[in-house]
Design a protein around this nucleic acid. Structure first.
Length: 290
DNA sequence: AATATACCCAACCGCTGAAGT
DNA sequence: CACTTCAGCGGTTGGGTATAT
């Protein structure tokens, strides 16, 4: 394909097919950014083909839209994905799978592209290193019963070190617009899946104001499989009350972590992976299935 | 210091569904 | 109702950079 050949052949590339003559591709220049930003600031976004034309950009509407949404749009956050955001990504992905734009609606300032990149580069990489499929039951259970509780513990510890102890990693303080006082999973499980309700559940978790997340979320129809995911925001409790999956394993892992001073690590998710307890947990999962 | 490898992320592509004609 | 256009989504790629050898 022409486009694939053209990609990667230089910093400024042009498509040769007749319906896209002289359309620029590749990295954006400062001048292009400025042109697009100025145009959208004055005229608003939407109608991206006409934006591209009227702004005087030799770009496709698609390209302009992507550049605006992922880079130029106000309040876009890049890098330094917080513990809360990491937890949220794991939680929401466990429910919705690769529906990145939907997940992104719950992380104000984050783009679907960034979340997708995060998942692919960090989470999938770990699954690969653990030699299991990212969609496998083993890996999902490891996330639910090992990594997510750890993340919550860290969040709690961090909060306690800065102020008073939170009641839960999913306390209502973190969801200022959540007037129901329940966490997202509870809302889902109890049938509160009206599209209009969705964006109000927890837009403030990362501390940023909501912007494009005003977009409505389609109704949930695929949640039943994961309805037991959170019980009051405590994954460990859930593991003990729910499926009964590897209860002892989870408790043993806790013991392992505390006896090894595990909870003092860095701030990134990376340090949660690939430790002995995780490998052991996965091995137990495989044994149980055998 | 030079080279190889791994990682990150911006940008592209094809597909799908909604909206417009 | 059929067709066309367009916006949005998820998957993929490749260049730049960091790290290891």
């Amino acid at each position: 394909m022409d486009n694939q050949i053209l990609r990667g052949c230089g910093s400024s590339k042009y498509v040769s097919c007749e319906d896209a003559m002289d359309v620029r591709r590749g990295p954006w220049t400062d001048e292009e950014d400025s042109m697009l930003k100025n145009y959208v600031t004055v005229h608003g976004d939407g109608r991206w083909n006409s934006v591209a034309r009227c702004a005087g950009l030799n770009r496709t509407g698609k390209s302009c839209r992507l550049r605006w949404l992922n880079y130029l749009r106000p309040n876009v956050k890049r890098g330094n994905i917080t513990l809360q955001e990491q937890l949220l990504i794991l939680e929401l992905h466990s429910r919705w799978g690769n529906r990145w734009s939907k997940i992104a609606q719950y992380l104000p300032g984050r783009t679907d592209n960034e979340i997708k990149n995060y998942w692919r580069t960090r989470v999938q990489k770990q699954a690969k290193q653990l030699k299991c499929d990212v969609n496998s039951k083993q890996f999902r259970d490891a996330m639910r019963y090992v990594w997510m509780p750890r993340l919550m513990e860290r969040i709690r510890a961090a909060a306690e070190s800065h102020s008073g102890p939170p009641t839960s990693a999913y306390n209502t303080d973190q969801f200022p617009n959540n007037h129901t006082g329940v966490n997202p999973s509870q809302a889902q499980a109890s049938g509160s899946d009206h599209p209009v309700d969705q964006p109000h559940i927890m837009p403030g978790i990362s501390g940023a104001s909501s912007d494009s997340s005003d977009a409505q979320v389609s109704s949930i129809s695929d949640l039943t499989e994961y309805n037991d995911l959170s019980g009051g925001g405590n994954y460990l409790d859930n593991s003990q009350n729910g499926s009964g999956l590897c209860k002892q394993a989870v408790m043993d892992i806790q013991g392992f972590e505390h006896s090894n001073g595990w909870f003092g690590g860095g701030d990134t998710l990376d340090s949660l992976w690939n430790d002995e307890s995780t490998v052991w947990f996965l091995q137990q999962q495989l044994c149980d299935e055998a």
